[in-house]
Design a protein around this nucleic acid. Structure first.
Length: 595
RNA sequence: CGGGAAGUGGCGCAGCCUGGUAGCGCACCUGCUUUGGGAGCAGGGGGUCGUGGGUUCAAAUCCCGCCUUCCCGACCA
């Protein structure tokens, strides 16, 4: 491809509203443009990278025996009603009506459609199956952000395994885990596999592949020592035991005029330190008012609450809802003596006595509260959010909290969708069995953005060879010079013939502009052809990632001979290494660092 | 949905407070010079100032509504 014929609109300045590095650079380097919030156009360079990411994913899926499909993006509403997700998904699902007034949805994911296809299987002999597609998903995100990292329309590789039993699912799950490790390695993404919550998709074992990055949206608790790693939505930490003083026979009411916060009560005469207080949060879980009790100095993690309660809609109650049910305002609330409302109590409060909490009457609190004795019918659960520096539950070392991009997610789905879609096969005994599913996703555009996010410098992008839009850019400093043009044309033709994707920068621009563009776009290798080198029969080869430049003798016969050597004939996935080997052979010493 | 900010040529911004009919840098077009790190000079093209209404002799500027976009939170590949 000649740069002069290409549409590569590079910008000196990033749009003012782009903050994430990947967003700024992908726009500046001419890979993407926003159409509207959460919807991006992939320009030619962007599509090339996107396709290469998809190719890597496809290759590794094929390698574990997965079969590629292409399913519709538009689904009948009835299909989603059958699985129960029509109502579960709420406003995150795009819905429309066709001319016959039938409900249609834009697929957010494809469990339903694949399970519906799986209904054609009738014998255990047909299992296991692993099916996948690379397809556009639509999600009406409340808040699209950070360029390609979070959008409303995106390509996802989603795969689904169907097995006869849990043991089979374990095998499929492991195969995916390993495939994902290979995929991210090829993309040069430094992922951590972490324990995760499976959220609205349902299921149990759940592993996320996280790329540490400040542009991410998830927090992962990580133990540097023992390797414990979990999404903050699942992470647990050891709580140092607290020895409570002897507890009174019954809760004791005491006046706390004007005291409305944990801190205020901690410094109040006759109050209690935060770790001796019960924090009472009033939540609405699927329209059911619910009390959630944590230690005064602990934070609630909403996803944990959603997971343990099974609720899909979790929010804090409004003040008026709270007052109507409990008769007191936030700041004076408590669960003691409350009957008839669900009460969740955090595990960290097990065995605690002599605690202080609100009395459900403004300006009054209770002390001498024994959690187990005084709270009616508590449901114990892990609800609190782990904080930086707390002790790892596995080994006791301090945990660190790392911001991450979720690049992939695999989880065991169970039989829910197969049951809903009536998937059933006969086992060896002739008995009907419902297969068990696994679900595995990778966002293609998100992975691309994650690569950009972790592979750039102040000059621009630095693509790993596996996903670079081009493998080599030939920068002709003076395209008006006949010799330079001729050398470039020869080199270009030969490289292309060797299936190395090559971008020929033949634009009649000043050298600085072309060099800066080549670096902004981030092509791994640049061959620079200029008068200075040509005078000695050399061109230069520069590695984008290191800036290292080597002089390479340009000898037409020699070069052609090298390029037709057998080693260049066979396609390789590691083009970067091939290029390096070309250089090593061509090189006539003279290595210098770029200043 | 809660909180915060912003909409002025393709991109980045100024102008608004104190109304008088739009400007700067980059990019673009033409010419000359220049040519190994985002050139110089000269000339030129391009903007219903997000949108609807109101105030006024006069609105980018003041007032009200709406739309859009971005950032921080709650949700997800």
């Amino acid at each position: 491809m000649r740069w002069s014929d290409s549409f590569i609109p590079t910008l000196r300045d990033a749009p003012g509203d782009a903050t994430a590095a990947s967003h700024q650079l992908l726009v500046r380097a001419g890979f993407i443009r926003q159409l509207h919030s959460g919807h991006y156009s992939l320009l030619p360079l962007g599509l090339r990278v996107h396709n290469k990411v998809a190719d890597v994913v496809r290759a590794e899926m094929d390698a574990i025996g997965a079969q590629e499909f292409l399913l519709p993006a538009m689904h009948p509403g009835d299909l989603w009603r059958r699985s129960g997700r029509w109502s579960l998904m709420g406003s995150e699902m795009f819905r429309l009506r066709d001319r016959n007034d039938a409900d249609v949805v834009l697929g957010m994911t494809h469990e339903e459609v694949f399970a519906a296809l799986a209904a054609e299987m009738s014998s255990y002999r047909e299992l296991p199956q692993t099916w996948y597609q690379i397809q556009t998903k639509f999600r009406d995100e409340p808040r699209p952000r950070s360029g390609l990292l979070r959008v409303r329309e995106f390509m996802m590789k989603d795969s689904y395994s169907f097995d006869m039993d849990e043991a089979g699912l374990d095998v499929s799950f492991e195969a995916h885990r390993e495939a994902y490790e290979r995929i991210f390695k090829r993309l040069d993404l430094d992922v951590m596999a972490v324990q995760a919550s499976s959220g609205a998709m349902g299921g149990d074992a759940s592993v996320e592949f996280m790329v540490p990055s400040p542009a991410g949206e998830d927090d992962v608790a990580r133990c540097a020592r023992c390797g414990y790693r979990a999404n903050i939505e699942r992470a647990r930490a050891a709580v140092p035991p607290i020895a409570d003083p002897p507890c009174g026979e019954e809760p004791e009411r005491f006046a706390t005029p004007g005291i409305r916060t944990i801190d205020a009560l901690a410094s109040f005469e006759g109050g209690a330190p935060a770790d001796r207080q019960l924090k009472t949060m009033v939540m609405i879980l699927d329209n059911q008012l619910t009390l959630v009790i944590l230690r005064g100095d602990h934070q609630l993690n909403l996803q944990k609450l959603a997971d343990c309660s099974g609720a899909t809609d979790v929010r804090a109650a409004t003040e008026s809802e709270t007052v109507a049910q409990l008769g007191a305002s936030p700041g004076s609330l408590g669960a003691v003596g409350v009957d008839g409302l669900p009460i969740y109590v955090d595990e960290a409060l097990r065995g605690r006595t002599s605690m202080t909490t609100g009395a459900n009457e403004d300006d009054w609190h209770l002390r001498e509260v024994d959690v187990a004795r005084d709270i009616i019918d508590p449901q114990w659960a892990d609800l609190r959010e782990v904080a930086e520096g707390e002790a790892c539950i596995m080994c006791g070392r301090p945990l660190e909290i790392v911001r991450c991009i979720e690049a992939g997610h695999i989880f065991k789905l169970g039989r829910r969708y197969c049951e809903a879609m009536g998937v059933s096969v006969l086992d060896a005994n002739g008995t009907a069995q419902t297969p068990i599913m696994g679900s595995y996703g990778i966002g293609i555009g998100r992975a691309m953005a994650a690569v950009a996010e972790t592979h750039h410098d102040e000059r621009g992008l630095i693509w790993p060879a596996a996903v670079a839009p081009f493998e080599i850019v030939i920068t002709v400093l003076d395209p008006g010079d006949a010799q330079q043009s001729a050398v470039a044309a020869t080199l270009y033709a030969e490289l292309e013939q060797k299936t190395l994707a090559c971008l020929l920068d033949d634009r009649p621009l000043r050298p600085g502009v072309k060099l800066a563009d080549a670096e902004l776009v981030g092509i791994p290798y640049r061959v620079t052809i200029g008068a200075r080198g040509m005078a000695n029969g050399n061109v230069e080869l520069t590695e984008r990632s290191t800036g290292t430049t080597e002089l390479v003798r340009f000898d037409r016969r020699g070069l052609l001979k090298r390029l037709t050597a057998p080693e260049y004939q066979e396609p390789s996935t590691v083009h970067g290494n091939r290029i390096k080997s070309v250089v090593r052979q061509e090189r006539r010493i003279a290595v210098h660092r770029k200043g």
